[in-house]
Each structure stands twice: as C-alpha cells, then as structure tokens.
C-alpha cells in the first residue's frame, strides 16, 4: 500500500468511528500527538500524587487516611495504565519519564499549587478530579484504542474520587467555624486553577483543531469548561460555600452560568515553570526515580542471574 492509500484508510476509520489500534498504519503526527497527550496525562497522574500525598501522614482520622492513601495509590495505577497505552506507540516508559524529569514533557499545571490545609484534599477531590473527570469521560471515546480503554478503566475507578472529596468538604461545612473557614479558603484557592485545567481558550489553543479532527479530543476546551462551571455552581449550594467569582450568575437566555475571567497571565506563568511548586514537584519525582535506580538494576540483575543459572543446569 502506498502512503497515500494508507492515509485514506486511516481517515476512513476515524470517520467511521473505528478505533485505531497499535499495529495499524497511522500518520506520524497522529502518533506523536498521542504520545504527547497520553504521556502528559500519565505524568499528570504521577505528579498529581504529590500534593495529595503530602497529607497522607496527617489525615485527621484513620478512615480518611485509608481513603486518601487508596486514592493516591489509584493515581499511580492510572499513571501506569497510561504509560502502558503510550508504550503501544513505540516509546518506553523510561523515555517518557526522562522527558518529564528533563522538563521537556509537561503535566497538568494544577499540581504546581500547594496543598496548605486538610480542606485542600477535599477541594482537590471535588474540583480538580471533577474537572479531570469531564475531560476523561470524553476521552473514553478517543480514537486511539489503547488510550480509550485505559480511560474506561480510569473513569470507573475515579468515580469514588470526586465523591469522597465532596463528602469530606460537606463534613467541614457542617463543622466548627474554623472548619468552615478552612473549607471556604480551600475553595477560594482551587477554583480558578481548576478552571485553568481545561486549557487555553479555544481561540488560542494550538493543538485542538487537528486533535478534534482526528477525534483524539472530542469536545473543545471552552465547552468542557462551561459544563464544569454549570455543574459546580449548583453543587456548591449544598455546601453553603461561595465560589470566588463576583460575576458568577445564572443566564436564563443562554441556559448556563455567566462567570468572570481567568487570570491568563497566571496560567501561562505556571506552565512556564513559575508556579508555586513547579520545582519541588519535579525534584520530588526525579529524586524518587534516581534513588530507585539501584533497586531497579538490582532486581533486573537478580532475574538475569536466575535465568542464567537455569540455563547452566
């Protein structure tokens, strides 16, 4: 087959909603876009373990400790599923991880914000996971088979994450004055960054068009962001808390909420590495990876020794 016909076959599959599988012909750019997006997604899961992981040792009850530990561990699992999906495209996990540590690969900027109180754990579950889920549900229908299948697994497991976050805030919202303040303060700090998670405005997003055409992405950044605002603006009423946005108001004609403007300077600054915790996050991941190197080598060496022994016998 010539490259031209291969490309047509590929485009016909996309058009007909037939998934692309690892061994199928695919354009270079499709492969690269998927590698970039899936590995960024995987990195986000792994780096995302850090801010929440901060509070495992300090969780306020044994039950909360177990929930948080299980949740952060789930993120590790999700990172693993995604690295695996990425590997079907011909790049190893180690290579992708090296790109993270060198700063070449990005991850979700949200995780460059600090977790300053226990309420942040609830706010992350509710807002950050809530925002992530909107994106992830869409991605269960993405055109690359292994990515879509990983997302199905992830969405199934994620469903408890947002619920536990909201439930934990609900307890705070009914607690003492100090707990209520802690809750409102966490919402104030996490609201805008979670809106930024949907990425730049559609008019400024460089990767979106082609990704939509190839059905890697299936909804635009702005569409997803609006559904998120509409959802959270209703849910927060149950907490008797407020979103930190004076312009937030129901718009009857549009049948959706109007709301204020994201601070895009802050958005770009955090992406460029100037967020409050960019350096700490990468440093923590690099440290774990480097300090784990002797362990990985030792285990591999031992396995090889054992095979050689068997051969010798």
């Amino acid at each position: 087959m010539t490259e031209q016909t291969s490309e047509n076959v590929f485009l016909q599959k996309i058009e007909a909603e037939i998934k692309i599988e690892p061994k199928d012909w695919m354009p270079d750019a499709y492969r690269k876009t998927n590698i970039r997006q899936i590995s960024q997604h995987a990195h986000s899961e792994i780096v995302g373990m850090l801010p929440e992981g901060n509070w495992i040792s300090r969780a306020p009850s044994l039950k909360r400790k177990l929930i948080l530990l299980a949740k952060v561990q789930d993120e590790a699992g999700h990172g693993l599923y995604l690295y695996s999906a990425c590997e079907t495209l011909g790049i190893t996990r180690e290579e992708t991880i090296n790109d993270l540590h060198s700063g070449k690969a990005k991850y979700a900027s949200i995780f460059n914000y600090p977790t300053l109180s226990w309420a942040d754990i609830g706010a992350i579950g509710w807002l950050v996971d809530g925002a992530a889920i909107m994106n992830q549900v869409m991605l269960t229908r993405t055109s690359y088979g292994p990515y879509a299948r990983a997302m199905v697994k992830i969405c199934k497991e994620e469903s408890f994450h947002q619920r536990q976050g909201f439930e934990s805030l609900l307890v705070l919202s009914k607690g003492t004055e100090a707990q209520k303040q802690m809750c409102q303060d966490a919402i104030n700090r996490w609201w805008w960054p979670s809106l930024m998670m949907f990425g730049p405005k559609d008019s400024e997003s460089t990767n979106s068009d082609q990704s939509m055409k190839w059905k890697i992405k299936r909804k635009s950044n702005d569409e997803l962001r609006q559904s998120f605002v509409d959802m959270i603006a209703e849910q927060i009423k149950l907490l008797s808390m407020k979103l930190p946005d004076d312009k937030l108001k129901w718009n009857k004609e549009k049948n959706q909420y109007d709301w204020g403007e994201i601070n895009w300077d802050e958005f770009w600054n955090v992406i460029k590495g100037n967020g409050p915790c960019n350096k700490e996050r990468i440093a923590a991941r690099s440290k774990a990876w480097e300090e784990g190197e002797w362990v990985r080598i030792a285990a591999k060496t031992y396995a090889e020794k054992k095979i050689n022994k068997q051969v010798a016998v």
Binding site: G53, K65, L69, Q73, A76, G292, R296
Partner: peptide, 27 residues
Amino acid sequence: AAWCGHGPVLEQDIAITNISLDLIGQS
C-alpha cells in the same frame, strides 16, 4: 505510607501502598 508517590518503580509504589492499607486496616 510515606513511600506512596516516591517508590522506586510504579508497580512497587502500588505494592507497598497495598501493604500499608492492609496494616492500617488491621490497626
């Protein structure tokens, strides 16, 4: 539990966290 997110390789990060969950559950 302090290993969670800092293990030498993802698979073992998950493994030791499972052990941690078991132990805290027992406690």
